[in-house]
């Protein structure tokens, strides 16, 4: 019985980006609102950046889900690194033109000029730091035609900061930074996530102190928190199956949090 509670709670923290699992957090939702607004503005391009695990991909898929019913929107979660392949995919998705053979940038510009869409399509590009700077420059030029809008995400590292400077700062791009959660936000995140999956028992075992310990270990990073809590519930599952006397089902134990942190490498022992 109990092991079921733990294993279902465990699955909540599988690291997957799925718009239906999106939880509404205060700061996140204001940022999300401003993102939605800037997408509506003409000529606005949006750069979403932040450290890995701050929820950029989650944002994009949520945006995709919310907008797809009202406008043309396309999400590319993994970058299409081959240039010809990239333009061929765009022409197929945006204009329903299946191109055979190579398609270069100038040829794609011709297609773009010939096909005036009433509604400007929105293209969401995740993990844009993987694109080469030449490819990035071409994406920017496409945006300058005002015939396609882009929202792209970037991991924030020094190198990517440089790309951001070169390509976006002087342009008409709007930049939005995503950050790690505060301890309060992290508690909301954990509890909302569990409640959403109907794991009420799982949600109730987290008090402020244990959340503070989790926050200290993960620094509020959503991905690290997922990793940690997945292992925490994994350990709980093991105990409830093999040594149930060792666990308290009403309050999460710091020891188990720390054991999970050791197992996931978030703290080294």
């Amino acid at each position: 019985m109990e092991s079921n509670i733990f294993s279902s709670s465990k699955d909540v923290f599988l690291d997957a980006v799925n718009a239906k699992d999106y939880v509404q957090l205060d700061r996140v939702s204001t940022i999300y609102q401003s993102l939605k607004n800037s997408v509506k503005k003409p000529l606005k391009m949006v750069l979403l950046y932040g450290k890995p695990g701050t929820g950029k991909s989650m944002f994009l898929s949520k945006l995709y889900q919310d907008l797809s019913s009202s406008q043309q929107v396309h999400l590319y979660q993994t970058p299409i690194l081959d240039e010809s392949e990239f333009f061929k995919t765009l022409s197929k998705d945006l204009f329903n033109i299946k191109y055979i053979g190579e398609l270069n940038f100038t040829q794609f510009l011709v297609i773009l000029n010939e096909n005036n869409l009433y509604d400007i399509p929105l293209v969401l590009l995740d993990e844009a730091q993987l694109y080469s700077s030449e490819q990035m420059e071409k994406i920017r030029l496409l945006a300058d035609t005002r015939k396609i809008k882009f929202v792209i995400t970037l991991h924030k590292t020094e190198r990517e900061d440089l790309i951001a400077k070169e390509h976006f700062q002087t342009r008409i791009w709007e930049t939005i930074e995503l950050e790690n959660a505060s301890a309060v936000e992290l508690k909301m995140y954990i509890q909302k996530k569990l409640m959403k999956a109907n794991c009420f028992d799982g949600a109730n075992i987290f008090n402020n102190k244990s959340v503070q310990l989790i926050h200290k270990i993960t620094k509020g990073n959503y991905r690290d928190t997922n990793k940690l809590l997945y292992t925490v519930f994994d350990i709980y599952t093991w105990y409830s199956e093999n040594n149930p006397s060792k666990i308290n089902t009403r309050q999460i134990s710091n020891k188990i949090i720390e054991m999970a942190a050791i197992h996931t490498g978030l703290i080294d022992a």
């Binding site: 350990i235 720390e258 054991m259 050791i262 197992h263 703290i267």
Partner: peptide, 18 residues
């Protein structure tokens, strides 16, 4: 996959270290 006994040992050394 999870070796709880090993993990408990590691946790103890971690606690002592901290």
């Amino acid at each position: 996959m999870l070796n709880i006994y090993d993990l408990e040992k590691k946790w103890l050394t971690y606690k002592i270290k901290s």
